[in-house]
């Protein structure tokens, strides 16, 4: 950090912690009350058998029992693997579709702004509303997905009936919403490709593949990593989409950690158990955010800011 400008009386504009703290403390206090405190409390709850719908029932201390139970519960591991499948599928589709969209939109052309609006709208929609509509699109009788697939397959198609096609349906809906985000990320990466390098590559008549590998990809790599981490974090938290489209079914084949936490907390009202599971998710997310933070700073350093 550069030295700050100092007045004749020796007071620097940016150097005073005595005046700096009062700026950030109010916000930090609100964050402590609304975010940090609930997280700590959530740890407290997870040590007790406790039902939020029966506040009079005295909480029963269990210690780490719920954590032990969760680690050895096959159902929980199935949710973990469903969540992983969903993230892996959705994020990879998003990268492919996002890259294709970049190819379409990175150069300016007449009407680009208006057409981009069509593509950017999905990521601004409410997930739960999107989920409800996709649930309708996947309807075997009235939905257009079934209507398109029926003549192709030669038999009626029920998208949400089998575990694989239900998961695929979820992935398509999530990727539809978020591929444009990956597109925006990749575009930001493209605009940091140094102009001189591109011109040099053109003069050298480098092949397209070579140009992509040695000129374009190195500039895009950092931002692609950020996009992946960001989408992994958000997909990990996805609750609304899953609950609206499949509600975990058929059976429990698309039940994810988030839907499991919701069901345990607000359908079964096993508040303590749900908190233990939620804390496990928090732990995973903090690890991922840490990775994101480091990737971000690395990219910042690489770009010289």
């Amino acid at each position: 950090m550069s030295a700050t400008v100092t007045r004749r009386d020796g007071r620097g504009i940016f150097a005073s912690t005595r005046h700096g703290w009062p700026m950030v403390v109010p916000a930090l206090c609100v964050l402590c009350v609304m975010n940090l405190l609930p997280i700590l409390w959530s740890f407290g709850i997870s040590f007790y058998r406790f039902r939020a719908d029966h506040p009079r029932l005295a909480p029963h201390f269990l210690g780490l029992d719920y954590y032990v139970e969760l680690m050895t519960d096959d159902d929980v591991w199935e949710r973990v693997s469903n969540t992983g499948e969903f993230i892996l599928g959705s994020v990879s589709v998003q990268i492919v579709v996002g890259a294709l969209l970049v190819g379409l939109f990175y150069r300016p052309f007449p009407g680009r702004r208006l057409i981009l609006m069509l593509v950017l709208t999905p990521m601004l929609l409410s997930t739960v509303v999107v989920g409800t509509f996709f649930n309708f699109f996947y309807d075997p009788t009235f939905g257009f997905v079934a209507a398109i697939m029926r003549p192709l397959l030669g038999h009626p198609f029920v998208p949400l009936a089998s575990p694989t096609s239900a998961m695929t349906s979820l992935i398509i809906a999530d990727a539809w919403m978020w591929s444009p985000f990956v597109m925006l990320m990749l575009m930001a990466g493209l605009s940091s490709v140094p102009r001189e390098l591109c011109e040099a590559a053109e003069i050298d008549r480098a092949s397209r593949w070579h140009r992509f590998r040695s000129v374009i990809f190195p500039s895009v790599r950092g931002v692609l990593l950020l996009a992946v981490l960001f989408r992994v974090i958000e997909s990990f938290n996805a609750y609304e989409l899953v609950s609206a489209i499949t509600n975990g079914g058929p059976g429990t084949s698309t039940e994810t950690l988030s839907t499991q936490i919701y069901g345990t907390a607000f359908v079964l009202f096993q508040t303590g158990r749900a908190s233990a599971l939620a804390n496990f998710s928090t732990f995973v997310i903090i690890l991922l955010v840490n990775l994101y933070f480091q990737a971000m700073r690395q990219r910042g350093r690489a770009m010289g800011t």
Binding site: L37, P38, S42, S258, T271, A278, V289
Partner: peptide, 21 residues
């Protein structure tokens, strides 16, 4: 970092205690 993490942790983690509170 703490501020960013606060926003990205699963909302359900904070919703359960907030509901009780």
């Amino acid at each position: 970092f703490y501020t960013l993490a606060m926003r990205m942790i699963p909302p359900l983690t904070t919703i359960i205690p907030l509901y009780v509170l």
